[in-house]
Simulated scan of single mutants.
Amino acid sequence: MKILLTGSNGMVGRNILAIAPNYPHEFLAPTSKELNLLDALSVRQYVELHQPDMIIHAAGIVGGIQANMAQPVKFLVENMQMGLNILTAANDAGVTKFLNLSSSCMYPRDAINPLSEDLILKGELEPTNEGYALAKVTSTRLCEYICQENPERLYKTIIPCNLYGRFDKFDPNHSHMIPAVIRKIDEAKKSQQPEIDIWGDGEARREFMYAEDLADFIFYALDNFVEMPQNLNVGLGTDYTINEYYQAVAEVVGYEGKFKHDLSKPVGMKQKLIDDMKLQEFGWSYKTALKTGIQKTYDFYLSEYCND
């Protein structure tokens, strides 16, 4: 297939392209200058010009709690505009297959874990990333509506758990937890800091999957797209506490200092574990263990960020 990949310069996009040579597909991977997803007209023109067989929408404004709380307007408006623009352009141009990447932050903050796919819009969202979640809910629902109106369309959504891995950002203000912790602990080791602070009590639980595993899933989904459910969680089906992630990173990095808890800081949802029952039925499971993934991510960090 000829596949248009949005967000090709992001972590997920770069992991997809890294293993793409192993598969018989042609990828269009425009930069944001070549395809401005916030400009509806240019999106429409690009899709009509290139006529892809399928679109994988992996673009987005992403970040951790700090970034979401600091810029809720940007996280809501730009993510929603990108989703609406690419989905409507695809539908109008007759693109029959669309894989939409959403997020487990769509699930209600008080929902009972593990979080199953039928919980979307069944309760109040987590306030610390509500804008991002609303944008993701909108794209997910739009895929459903397009399929309702036109049964020939296969517009489906995957809902990954939290991700980390190669090509991630290691910026403490904008990155997700594991890359931020890798940088924080590596710098603490190098400067011989005796202790590191953890936001909250560290008992909140999170599920993190190595991003290359998500890329592997996406190629599996391409081969089995008709059978794939409309909305599908993609994750591990198991989680760890924030404290356990810090400890795992410390062991990989070789940091021997102590941890202290800053109880004044927000922690987000207490738990966010996806229900992987449909994923198991679909026939796919993750491959990379936590310590292995952290080691690979740390190696990438050392090679890409610590060479100057």
Rank of each mutant, 00 (worst) to 15 (best):
S32W: 05
L87T: 07
E187W: 14
E117Y: 13
V95Q: 00
F170Q: 00
N224S: 07
K296S: 04
L134S: 13
T238Q: 15
G83E: 03
C306S: 11
L134G: 15
N224K: 11
F217G: 11
N224C: 05
D110V: 09
L115K: 14
D213G: 12
N85F: 02
L28Y: 00
S116K: 08
P114Y: 01
Y240A: 11
I120M: 13
L302H: 05
L273P: 05
G202H: 03
D239Q: 12
I196K: 09
L35G: 01
Y210M: 12
Q247T: 14
I56S: 10
K260Y: 15
L302N: 06
L37I: 02
G123H: 09
E117F: 14
Y298E: 04
Y246L: 07
I198F: 02
D39H: 02
F300M: 03
V226E: 12
Q271A: 12
E152M: 15
F217K: 11
H57S: 05
F259S: 10
I242D: 13
V95A: 02
L134H: 15
K291C: 10
E244G: 05
D39E: 01
A188S: 00
M82E: 05
G268H: 04
L232K: 06
N100P: 00
A211C: 13
L263E: 12
K272E: 15
L302C: 11
E149H: 15
H261Y: 10
F282L: 05
T128S: 15
G268Y: 04
E124L: 14
Y240G: 07
T288V: 08
A133F: 14
L119N: 13
E34M: 02
T288D: 07
L142K: 14
E34I: 00
A89G: 00
R166E: 10
S303Q: 11
Q280A: 13
A40N: 03
K2N: 04
K291V: 07
A215C: 03
A289L: 10
S8R: 01
I16H: 00
I185Y: 06
N22D: 09
L84A: 06
E251W: 09
K156Q: 08
V137W: 13
E34G: 02
K184V: 11
P179C: 03
Y132M: 11
T157F: 08
L125K: 14
T88H: 09
Y107H: 09
M82D: 04
L222F: 05
I178N: 02
M228A: 07
V47N: 03
D216P: 11
K272Q: 15
E126I: 13
Q295M: 11
R166D: 12
Q247R: 12
Q247K: 14
D168V: 03
M177L: 07
V77H: 09
P21G: 07
E227P: 07
R44V: 04
V95N: 00
